[in-house]
Amino acid sequence: MAACNDYYYATRDPLGSAGDFTTAPEISQMFGEVVGAALTDVWRRAGSPAHAAYVELGPGRGTLAADALRVMRSAGLDPDIFLVETSPTLREVQAAALNGTITHVDMIDALPGDRPLLVVANEFLDALPIRQHVDGAERHVTLTPAGLAFDRDGTILETSPARDEAVEALSEGLVAVGGVALVIDYGHARTAPGDTLQAVREHRFAPVLADPGEADLTSHVDFERVADIAREAGAFVAGPVEQGPWLERLGIQARARVLANASPERAGDIEAARARLCRPDAMGSLFKVLAIHSPEWPSPAGL
């Protein structure tokens, strides 16, 4: 999974109608604006510390960052920008989208250790590699005369050492310098067995083992595990809550009305985007929001 995704992300821009999938920031500017407002609010309640940094893990095209930073700057917060991104292709797209001074780093451990961090991880953890176990034995991929195949089936329990390491590094960094992280992803609130590994290509599900490196491989995030790892690192946790109610509590409906009033010809599209982000039968329930913050910082609103 790691090898496939490393190749996949390094060789293309996978987002949008011409790509393989669409994330929340690409659906509507409202998503990034709510994120920016939430981070600005918690920064103010933490005493408006100087030199805070905006950090995004896996920032895609930079769309979320652009929308969030526009709100932050309008409220008097103009942070330095650090993006955790390994894809050369996406780094170029992000630099063009943000049109300013940004710093790219390859890993969470390379983030600055001398200032508070305002972190967003939107659909980042789901792409980190997982392991699957059946009756205590690890499930492997083997090569057969018919192609790639799994070596065992049954009730599956998934773990992700890579995800654990990323959450631990992020949490330890926040405890050391102060700040908050919003983790937004699809997954389950409680640890449970199940096979959640999936491949998406051209906006449709694809066979997981077909055409390695040519589809986006992800799995559902175990938010209970994420919270446990963060607490073990000394951080505080709020949530998870469902994405739809969180966006609604933070005012996405009011923002939709403002945008619709400014562009009446787009009112239908704006409402459709809001519904897609918030409705339980769309992204509203499957996607969760969890905050990780240093002990001296408050929890973000809506959680």
Rank of each mutant, 00 (worst) to 15 (best):
Y9W: 06
A10K: 13
T11D: 09
T23F: 05
A24G: 01
P25D: 13
E26R: 06
E26F: 09
S28P: 11
V34H: 06
V35I: 15
A38W: 02
T40E: 13
R45C: 06
S48C: 14
H51E: 04
H51R: 15
G60T: 05
T63S: 06
L64F: 06
A65P: 01
D67T: 01
R73V: 06
L77A: 06
D80C: 02
L83Y: 00
T86N: 13
R91H: 12
A95H: 11
G100M: 14
T101Q: 15
T103F: 11
A110V: 14
G113M: 11
D114Y: 11
R115H: 12
E123F: 08
L128W: 04
D135G: 13
D135T: 14
R139P: 08
R152D: 00
G154W: 03
A162R: 09
L170Y: 10
S171Q: 08
G173C: 00
V175R: 01
G179Y: 02
H188I: 08
R190I: 14
R201H: 13
R204N: 14
F205S: 01
A210G: 08
P212D: 07
S219V: 00
V221L: 09
F223K: 00
F223R: 05
R225N: 10
R231T: 15
G234P: 02
A235Q: 03
G239A: 13
E242F: 13
E242N: 11
G244L: 12
G244E: 10
E248W: 05
R249A: 15
A260N: 06
S263A: 14
R266G: 03
A267C: 02
G268Q: 03
E271N: 03
R274Y: 00
R274I: 05
M283N: 00
S285L: 11
P295Y: 04
S299Q: 04
